[in-house]
Simulated assay, not measured.
Amino acid sequence: MSDQLVFYTNPMSRGRIIRWMLEEVGQPYETHILEWATIKDPAYLAVNPMGKVPAIVHGDTVVTECAAICAYLADAFPQTGLAPPVGSKLRGDYYRWLFYAAGPLEAAVTVKSLGFEVPPDRKMMAGWGDFGDVMDTLEKALTGREYLVGDSFTAADLYVGAHLGWGLQFGSIEARPVFTAYADRMAARPAAARAREIDDALIAAAA
C-alpha cells in the first residue's frame, strides 16, 4: 500500500482533531482545504458521500469520522505508540474511551446544546442516559490519572481531550477542575500546538 496520506479538511471544523492526530503521527501528509460552498461537489462526495470533513485517504483506503480516523492512524503507524498493542489488556479501555467520546459524550453535549433534556423516565431510551451521567462517568475515569489508558498518551486521550477542550472553550461542558486540568495537559502537547498553529494560520489567511 502507498504510504501517501491525503487529508481533507476545513480549519473551522472537526478536522482540527485530525490535524492534531496527523501531527502526532509525524508522517508526511497532503492537505486539501475544502470550502463550505463546494464541499458537496461530486469530486469530494466520491471521497465522503456525507459531504463533510474530515476524511483521509491512505493509499487505497478511505476513512471518515473522527474517531475512526484516529483509530485507523494509530494502527497504521504502530511505531507511534498511539494505541496499545493488539492483544494488550489495555486495548479494551482504549476502545472504550475513544468511542465513548464519539458516542455518549458528543451526543449528550449536542442534545444539551440544542436545549433538549432527556426526561428522567425516558433515560433508558437514550444510549447515554443523560448529560449528568456522561459527565460523572468521565470525571471518575480521569480523577487521579494523567492518561485514560495505562501510563502513556494514546489516540483516546487526543480524542477525549479535543472534545473537552472544545466544550470548555464554548461552555457546552462544565468546567470541572478535573476536566480543565486534563484538557490543558493535552493541549500543551507539541503536536497539538503545531496543529493549532497551522489551522489558525489558515483561518487568518482566509479572513
Results as ranks from 00 to 15, higher is better:
3 D>C: 04
9 T>Y: 07
13 S>E: 07
13 S>G: 09
13 S>D: 09
14 R>I: 00
14 R>H: 03
15 G>W: 13
28 P>R: 11
30 E>C: 04
35 E>R: 03
38 T>A: 14
39 I>A: 13
41 D>V: 03
46 A>P: 01
46 A>I: 08
46 A>D: 11
48 N>P: 07
53 V>T: 13
53 V>W: 11
57 V>N: 05
57 V>M: 08
59 G>M: 06
61 T>P: 00
63 V>T: 08
68 A>F: 06
70 C>T: 10
74 A>C: 14
84 P>T: 02
86 V>I: 11
89 K>I: 04
96 R>H: 14
101 A>N: 09
104 P>D: 12
105 L>D: 04
105 L>E: 10
105 L>P: 07
106 E>F: 06
108 A>S: 15
111 V>L: 15
116 F>A: 13
118 V>P: 06
122 R>I: 00
125 M>T: 00
125 M>I: 01
126 A>R: 01
127 G>K: 07
128 W>Q: 00
129 G>C: 05
130 D>E: 10
131 F>D: 05
140 K>R: 13
150 G>M: 06
151 D>C: 04
154 T>L: 03
154 T>I: 01
155 A>G: 12
155 A>Q: 04
160 V>F: 14
162 A>S: 15
169 Q>M: 08
174 E>A: 15
177 P>W: 14
178 V>S: 10
179 F>N: 11
179 F>D: 08
179 F>Y: 15
183 A>E: 02
189 R>F: 09
193 A>N: 02
195 A>K: 08
201 A>W: 02
203 I>D: 03
205 A>I: 10
